[in-house]
């Protein structure tokens, strides 16, 4: 299990990891540790490190039921069905059934710590995480995050993080 808040990189696509490092360099993502680490990297280094992590097997994780059943239900509902009356599509509408992602534009959202998922939704909401301006994903995730309240963000992050992962299905 990852240290709280630190995302797993193993098994993410090289294209996605490269784009994230470029986002730290451009200031489209901001993180106290990563921003400064990314800035000195050359394009070749970015590609090398992205390829390396993409070839590592995704760690497996058994599902852990959440202690708060109400929170679990709310999180599952948002992940699988969304809250369309509030303009929130289901996470799985774009990140694929089971949240396993569609590379490269829709990263897997299972197999990540709750604190990381929560921080990312908040970063999209506040505008401190952005894709390239011409990328539609930018507006898609911003609008969804904008409409999510605190309770929804916490619930869906907790539920996603508690799901089992099966590496064979990642690609």
């Amino acid at each position: 299990m990852a240290v709280a808040g630190y995302p797993r990189l193993a098994g993410l696509s090289a294209e996605y990891i490269s784009e994230q490092l470029k986002a730290y360099i451009d200031g489209r993502r901001v993180n106290a540790i990563m921003s400064d680490m990314a800035k000195p990297l050359t394009i070749v280094q970015i590609q090398s490190v992205a390829t390396f992590f993409s070839t590592l097997p995704m760690p497996t994780q058994a599902g852990t039921p959440l202690s708060d059943a109400t929170q679990a239900d709310r999180g599952q509902q948002l992940a699988e069905r969304g809250d369309w009356s509030a303009g929130i599509p289901a996470c799985f509408n774009c990140h694929a059934p089971g949240g396993i992602g569609i590379q490269p534009s829709f990263p897997p959202i299972i197999g990540q710590p709750a604190a990381y998922i929560e921080a990312q939704i908040r970063a999209w909401k506040s505008g401190t995480r952005q894709a390239e301006p011409q990328n539609l994903a930018n507006a898609l995730m911003y609008n969804v995050a904008l409409r999510m309240n605190d309770n929804q963000i916490k619930s869906v992050a907790a539920w996603l993080a508690a799901q089992p992962t099966a590496p064979k299905n990642q690609h």
């Binding site: 489209r28 303009g87 505008g127 911003y142 904008l146």
Partner: peptide
């Protein structure tokens, strides 16, 4: 209003939309 409050000043404004078809 929401955009003005929530977008960090260093970032470009992101397009917003109506919430749903309804």
């Amino acid at each position: 209003l929401i955009s003005a409050l929530s977008i960090a000043p260093t970032q470009a404004a992101v397009e917003t939309s109506a919430p749903n078809a309804a």
